[in-house]
Amino acid sequence: MDANSIAADIRQKIVSGEYPHGSRLPTVREQVERYGVSQQTASAAYAALAALGLVRTDSRSGTRVAAGRQSDAHLGTFAPPDLTAAQAWKPTTSGEAREETTLVRQIDAPESMAAWGIPAGSTVVERTRIRSVDGVPVQHKVTVMPYEVAARTPEGYEGTPPMLTPAGEESPKAPAGVRAADWLGWNSAHTECIITAEPMDDAACEALGVPAGSPGFRIVGITRDAEGATVFATVTTAQLHHRVTLGIIG
């Protein structure tokens, strides 16, 4: 076997959960015996896994799994004209899924948000969520929206606007079968998704517990209303061993 084949075999064991997050992998010498290859080949396999952000190695603890169970960054199930079946994400195979809002803050939009149709310097609300499978973080998601959009409330609703609910508190949900966008009167008409594979930013790496600069999927979704104004933008980050899926019906 070559280094790529060994790396692929170990990656599959990580994805399946045979090698869970935080577990210590066999030593290079043990892999030499297991796969019947040279030490150079076994070391190259671990180097390839480290380059993908799946493992990390240090002299004290050896090589440990830095990745969690595989999950799907699901962009939605679209069945025109009814979009209520959209499912934002899910574990790929099994495991307990959980999502937590870890940060809600009001900031001035940086220049980089102009590419999303949000003017630099305008007031926006930023919400950060962490998605986990079996308690291990697998996705980092940031949602940004103009303050005037975040401050909207459903007709007859009293209390803090749902999008301004502080982190750690339960945010009100739309009634069953109703999109949050419709419930809040956002007039969402179109979403553009941009998917790239690139080094994850520092905040995502820290949240996911992987080395800084680890590669991952960066999924930017920009939702606009019927007039073309940006309603909100999302940036979902996941490691490369995860999947990005989309369902279109009709």
Results as ranks from 00 to 15, higher is better:
N4A: 15
S5I: 00
I6H: 12
D9T: 08
D9Y: 10
I10N: 07
R11Y: 00
K13V: 01
V15L: 10
H21A: 13
G22K: 09
S23P: 08
R24A: 14
R24C: 01
L25M: 13
P26G: 03
T27K: 07
E30N: 14
Q31H: 14
E33H: 14
E33C: 02
E33D: 15
V37Q: 11
V37N: 09
S38G: 15
T41H: 05
T41Q: 01
A42K: 11
A42L: 11
A44Y: 08
A47T: 13
A51W: 00
A51T: 02
G53F: 06
G53C: 03
L54P: 06
V55C: 03
D58C: 03
R60T: 10
S61F: 11
T63R: 08
T63M: 06
A66E: 04
S71F: 08
D72Y: 07
A73C: 10
T77P: 01
F78P: 00
P80D: 03
L83F: 13
L83E: 09
L83C: 01
A85M: 08
A85W: 10
Q87V: 13
A88N: 08
T92N: 07
T92R: 11
T92W: 08
T93R: 13
E96P: 00
A97F: 09
A97Q: 04
E99S: 14
T101G: 03
T101F: 06
T102S: 12
L103P: 02
L103C: 07
V104W: 10
R105Y: 00
Q106P: 00
I107V: 15
E111A: 14
A115D: 12
W116E: 10
G117C: 03
G117T: 04
I118C: 09
I118F: 10
A120R: 14
T128C: 04
R129P: 00
D134P: 11
P137T: 05
V142G: 02
T143D: 07
V144N: 01
M145V: 03
M145N: 06
V149G: 07
A151Y: 06
G156N: 02
G159V: 06
T160W: 02
L164C: 08
T165G: 04
T165H: 06
A167S: 14
P172D: 06
P172T: 00
K173Y: 02
D182V: 06
G185Y: 09
N187T: 01
N187C: 01
N187A: 13
A189M: 04
C193T: 12
I195H: 00
A197G: 01
P199C: 05
D201F: 10
D202F: 05
D202E: 15
D202P: 00
C205D: 05
E206Q: 13
E206P: 02
E206N: 07
A207Y: 08
L208Q: 08
G209K: 07
V210A: 00
V210G: 03
P215I: 06
P215A: 09
G216P: 04
V220I: 15
V220S: 12
V220K: 05
V220R: 15
R224S: 12
D225V: 04
D225G: 07
A226L: 05
E227W: 03
A229H: 11
V235M: 10
L240M: 11
H242N: 15
H242M: 02
R243L: 12
L246G: 00
L246P: 01
I248A: 06
I249V: 12
G250W: 07
